[in-house]
Design a protein around this nucleic acid. Sequence first.
DNA 1: CTGAAGATGTTGGGAAAGCAACGATCGCGG
DNA 2: CCGCGATCGTTGCTTTCCCAACATCTTCAG
Lengths: 192, 192
Amino acid sequence: MPVNIDDPRVRRTRQLLMQSFTELLIERKNLHSISVQDIAAKATVNRTTFYAHFEDRYAFLESWMREKFQKRLNEALPDSSISDMGSLRTLILAVFDFISRIRQHMTPADSQYERLFESAMQRELYQLLFKWLSEASSSPSKEIVEATAQIISWGIFGSALQWSRDSQDRTIEMIVRDVLVVVAAGLAPVME
Amino acid sequence: MPVNIDDPRVRRTRQLLMQSFTELLIERKNLHSISVQDIAAKATVNRTTFYAHFEDRYAFLESWMREKFQKRLNEALPDSSISDMGSLRTLILAVFDFISRIRQHMTPADSQYERLFESAMQRELYQLLFKWLSEASSSPSKEIVEATAQIISWGIFGSALQWSRDSQDRTIEMIVRDVLVVVAAGLAPVME
DNA sequence: CTGAAGATGTTGGGAAAGCAACGATCGCGG
DNA sequence: CCGCGATCGTTGCTTTCCCAACATCTTCAG
């Protein structure tokens, strides 16, 4: 298990593995058909090295999902804050869009990974919300901020998940507008 | 000094260093202003590793030049042979074009590297010609083939070098046509 | 059902890459 | 001319990576 994540070799290996898996996922839609050997080979990295970085394939998939999701959110909100209604809408939109795209790469054979991906996304969303709220909030109570981040992250994520499952009969703009109203109201107590 | 050139780490490191130097050369035109540290940094490789692969900066530059030149020639002649007059012209054209491009990246401060580059190119051209002639020639004598490769490689390379120095008053098409005639004649004895 | 092929993790030893530190050399402004 | 900083090339030691081999476990065709 590599100890120093600042070691250039460690960074390079991780990046190569992540990138390779992303490309494989684009080539062959089916997640389940991608083996550890495939990922390692494409990354020109030994299979053993894969296991030096990740406990098992599930730990890798979780890291991959968290990284992808985090990157997506940070690209959507470059200033790293939810300053106004507009940025809040952008955030919600990004979550809905991301979940929808991920689902396109899932086949019935991949259902075993659904819960893994979902929890990774929710946790990542919570952490980002908590960080942003801690900076922007007027509330002095850490507990209040935590609770707010929990409720809002679950609220956004859960509704996005449900929408992505229900064959998406409502357009993304419509549903996002509705979610925005509720979320904004929930955020009100901790914002000035 | 790495021993096994099939080791994925060795291949990766070499490629990273080569690629990084190429990009640096495009960014900052001046060859002389590029330090070993610059190359290593851009390749996310330790400076010590650079010296594990190359005796010194000169050995690196020679390898880089040979690799670039070889790649350029193989791209120009994908079938790896000089089957007819057309492919021979393509080869000569590639040499002239390559030398001309390289010169664009040279400033007076880089004059110390000229001889290095030149000998690398000539030797590479010789080796390719020898290989091709060995396959295509009808001559049973190895000595004849060697001598032919020597003369032709020096002939093409030398005239290209001279042309690139002389402010290129004649168009590349004109000079190449003339060189082609002579080279073809020189090649005649060993071709069927 | 079976066994052959392939995927998952694991281990030990050797090779490559990273790192900090060193003296030597070069260039250049004071 | 001096000396200060930057680059060069080297060394000893640590960490990471590669590799071959192994024991499971799954899968799927005969």
